[in-house]
Simulated scan of single mutants.
Amino acid sequence: MACWQREFARDPGRRAFVSVGCVQRPERVAVIGVGILGASVGWNLSRHGAAVVFIDAGQPGEGVTNWSFSWVNASNKTERRSYFDLNVASMAAYRELAGTIGPGSWWHPSGHLRWAGDSAAEAKLLETAELLAGWDYRVEVYTGAEVRRRLEPALTVPGRTPVLFYPDEAWVHGRHLVGRLVGRAVESGAEHRSGTAVCDIGTGADGSIRTVTLSDGSRLDVDAVVNAAGPSASQVAGLITRHLPMCREPGVVTRIGCAQVPVHRAMHAPHIEIRPDGDASVVLHSREVDALIDTGEDPAELARLLHESAKHVVPELGNSRIAQTRVAHRPIPADGFPSVGAVPSVPGYYEAVSHSGITLGPVIGRLLASEILSGKRDKMLADFRPERFPQSENLPHIHD
Rank of each mutant, 00 (worst) to 15 (best):
P109M: 14
G341D: 06
T143E: 02
V53Y: 02
R219K: 10
N66M: 06
V353T: 07
R81N: 09
R47G: 05
V147K: 01
L360D: 01
I358R: 01
A259I: 10
E27I: 08
S19L: 14
G365K: 01
H264C: 09
N227H: 06
S40W: 01
A205E: 14
L381Q: 03
F8H: 03
E27M: 12
I201M: 13
R210L: 09
A190K: 00
V363C: 09
L113C: 05
V340F: 03
L151I: 12
L97S: 02
S119D: 09
M380R: 14
G278L: 13
L360C: 03
L151D: 00
G58C: 10
V64D: 01
A2C: 10
F54E: 04
K124E: 12
A50P: 00
P396N: 08
K124G: 05
P362M: 10
P162N: 05
V20T: 14
H48I: 00
V20K: 10
D290G: 06
G207I: 07
M91R: 06
G207R: 11
T196S: 13
A342V: 10
R184F: 15
G183C: 12
A123P: 03
Q235D: 14
V222C: 06
G375M: 04
L97N: 00
H176D: 15
V186T: 14
F54T: 09
H48T: 13
V64I: 10
R248H: 07
V72A: 02
P231Y: 13
A190Y: 00
G117K: 01
